[in-house]
Design a protein around this nucleic acid. Sequence first.
DNA 1: TCTCCTTACGAGTTGCGTAACTATA
DNA 2: TATAGTTACGCAACTCGTAAGGAGA
Lengths: 313, 313
Amino acid sequence: MKLQQLRFLIEVVDSGLNVTLAAERLFTSQPGVSKQIRLLEDELGMRIFERAGKRFTAVTGAGESIIRAARRVLLEAENFRNVAEELRDEDAGTLTVATTHAQARYVLPRVVAEFIRRYPRVRLSISEGDPHHVANAVQRGEADLGIATEALAKAPGLVSLPAYSWNHCVIVLPDHPLLALQPLTLKALVRFPLISYDPAFSGRTRIDDGFARAGLTPNLVLTAVDSDVIKTYVSLGLGVGIVAEMAIDPQRDSGLVALPAGHLFGANTTRIALRRGAYPRTFAMVFAELVSPALTPESLSAASRETPESYDI
Amino acid sequence: MKLQQLRFLIEVVDSGLNVTLAAERLFTSQPGVSKQIRLLEDELGMRIFERAGKRFTAVTGAGESIIRAARRVLLEAENFRNVAEELRDEDAGTLTVATTHAQARYVLPRVVAEFIRRYPRVRLSISEGDPHHVANAVQRGEADLGIATEALAKAPGLVSLPAYSWNHCVIVLPDHPLLALQPLTLKALVRFPLISYDPAFSGRTRIDDGFARAGLTPNLVLTAVDSDVIKTYVSLGLGVGIVAEMAIDPQRDSGLVALPAGHLFGANTTRIALRRGAYPRTFAMVFAELVSPALTPESLSAASRETPESYDI
DNA sequence: TCTCCTTACGAGTTGCGTAACTATA
DNA sequence: TATAGTTACGCAACTCGTAAGGAGA
């Protein structure tokens, strides 16, 4: 059994049992991957994949356990490398943060500014995507940290810690009739065309839940990934916007009026996630601490190692 | 970084930085080990060992962390193999139990009898030695289970669970003056030459503690690893024996009288240990359960995975 | 001088890529 | 017929063992 065989195995699994795709991702030849998988199966004396003719169709029951164990080995191998890199030079390396637009645009800039000041020799990479992308990137080890409001808390293979809480706000043009209706109610809101986030973004579930609980159906005329897009269309008079409060800059957004909406939708909690069992680099933990001072290196390190996944077959 | 390099590294460390010895234990050539260590150091960009000329003299500070991380990788690699073997055939394989004479001779026979009845296709190997040997064998993965009364509770890298408790007893010839002195006291005992276990065996610490607390100095004329040796010399009239109660068989030892001594030395707890983080085979857990019904597979599995060692550098 | 690690070199093995083959949708 | 995995083959790299070299104790 070689580490490479385990790498090949996991990549095939993560490529949806497509050996050709796995080989591409591994920058190697397809027959090579195929052969190593076969050699591993032979050595273990069992089939990991069910085949229909030559195609891989499913993972066998035994294969599921093998794959879990293989992921553990690879995780520790990666931790080994991390330890070595940390020891060689604790202030250099690469940090990849997977996050959503809202965080990247409104929360992380001040964090990143401070981080690159403190760690000028760390290559920082921000990978932007939807919350499921964030969770997957961390699960697969492609990102060291994940920061998002959705999808992280329940994702398997991750540990996530609350970083900070925030509320939504409603944005309208200065002459909008809603301004006369203080305090704001859901019932008043549904009378207007609404513009907010795509499903699964930036607390959108909270917004949906808020309306659903009140038995109301909002008229969402436009959804976007991006708070700036929402603000733009609100400025054009297309509707009433619901955005995260940190997306509002009083100076820049002077043409809009923001109304607090925390009482309508409840607070959202943005979480920071890392891979369960992973050994994070020191600078990764410092990055988390810059996001939220409550996330000390100690708490993060402890969280990543607690309640390891079981070995149940 | 290859698994083999990590294996070589750990074996060198466990051979007291003697590359030649490590090579022998690994059944390979010394230059091969030497080279792979060097290659690993080059890849990591640091020295793991301090050298005086060509000799390895110490582990570097960074090396300590590297070695800890390497042990984790190897442990998971071994667990991977265990999972595969378990899946291939859960009722076959090899079980190595490291234990002391007292357990092997008086406690395990009935366990082993039942075990080989239940798992006829498991090769069972009992490795006998002193309690430190037991702890080391389990730490190094040479044994799957360790059973001993001493040394296991505090050994690093192990998890140990209490299996059962027992008391010492005093054995004398039928005409011995101690028999007139009921109940037995420590003060009475020290007046006679005593025969008991070697230090660090079978609750010997309890015996020493008992006398020390009473401010008494026992006259140990003979110490042995082996309860049978003690009984033999007691039979010859050489002195008064102090042995574990399970070493007394009323039939076979009819020439001796056994007096309970739990009130003098307190109870001893025999523990069963496995490597922290190890994934035990099902039949290993069944073996433990045969030793003590309280040690269910669930409790054992949970114990081995709890509070993993930290990654502190 | 003895022990022990390193260097050098040659043989055997392994891993990987290309190309041809085969089976399924 | 297109897609995807296996088999075949040859080259390159690596591992390992033997033998010789050199530095401490």
